[in-house]
Design a binder for these strands. Structure first.
Lengths: 192, 192
DNA sequence: GCCTTAAACTAACACTTGTTTGTTTAGATT
DNA sequence: AATCTAAACAAACAAGTGTTAGTTTAAGGC
């Protein structure tokens, strides 16, 4: 039941995620990708229309996951601090469940071809807007300091989107430790 | 006087910084780079040994600047908070003075060939160690909260190394505003 | 006016790029 | 057993890759 996607197609995608992350999209050839899968390059075209098609699937699948995860953050009843914490946890959770793919999402999206590139940029802006809204409302309610919203959002995403590096390092941290650790630094600050 | 480096060599480097940043090292060809300079591809080899040679000069020059800038951070008399602030200002200052090149430094170093790649990694580790030391000493002195040093350093560098994005955006911020704004968020936190 | 030298050029090399074409293989369906 | 189909393959395409060889151009010092 449910042979919805062939196994080969899935392997192609997983190996693409790994290779695109390791070497960058432009530096990975179709023959190299095929070899990693254990087939010949033209066989990939039985499963994907083009090289760009593989990248597109990776990037937009992660984008969907970010939106879905943010959708679970409760809308109105929590405090801004709790809301931001929940959003950070959701975001880091998606990265944790898609370590290689999310790294590709963050660093290789620029190789998407139009019109998908424009659509991607819009989606990312809309997603980030959710975070900006939390901060704006939090500032008005007095939950947050009167910081520059853009600078704060920027700092948050910079930290969150680099968490890939933490997962591949020696000192193992759980997703909760990473999410809460970063949230602590961002919310309470370093100063003792 | 002081025709130490020809003008063409400098233009090659500047255009390389721009193109490597825009499209990624692997996606930029020597013919494309040459065209941007206004010469033919083989002429580049009168000034640089190879494509990798161009990337190497860009990356290691920025690395030197980071070390020199960190060297100006006063060693012993300041509080840890002031020391961290000074280090952040120095770091952001280097990025501000080398917007394109520092973006290449952060995203394209992986394309360096050995043995330079290994040397680069070591330099970066040593540089980051300076920040880890500040935080460690600050924690011992009670200037900082008892946070996870690695997580804190990670958060700092994630934010600092993405500042390139702030410079190319519409809402113009000065280097001081960016450095102090990020430092404020990191030190004092968002919570009001 | 000649010689040197730096830096440009054209032409080409060997190889790799993403992709298409046409064919074969193997497994499932009838 | 015959048919259909998904998915593999080898061969080849045109274009592009970094780089080298050999040559020409142009400016400066004697």
């Amino acid at each position: 039941m449910a042979a919805s996607v062939s196994n080969t197609r899935l392997v192609i995608r997983q190996k693409a995620e790994k290779l695109f992350r390791e070497k960058g999209y432009a530096a990975v050839g179709m023959r190299e990708l095929a070899k990693e899968v254990g087939i010949e390059a033209p066989s990939i075209y039985n499963h994907y229309k083009s090289k760009d098609d593989v990248l597109r699937e990776i990037c937009f699948d992660i984008a969907d996951q970010f939106f879905k995860a943010f959708g679970t953050v409760d809308g109105n009843e929590k405090s801004s601090v709790k809301k931001l914490r929940a959003a950070i946890r959701s975001h880091v959770g998606v990265i944790a469940n898609n370590i290689e793919a999310s790294s590709v999402f963050f660093h290789e999206w620029m190789f998407l071809e139009e019109p998908h590139l424009a659509k991607f940029k819009k989606m990312r802006f809309d997603y980030e807007q959710g975070f900006r809204d939390i901060i704006e409302r939090g500032k008005k309610k007095g939950d947050f300091k009167n910081v520059n919203t853009r600078l704060a959002t920027f700092t948050i995403f910079s930290a969150l989107n680099a968490t890939y590096d933490l997962y591949k390092s020696k000192e193992k941290l759980s997703t909760e430790e990473i999410a809460d650790g970063i949230a602590d630094v961002l919310l309470k600050g370093l100063k003792g």
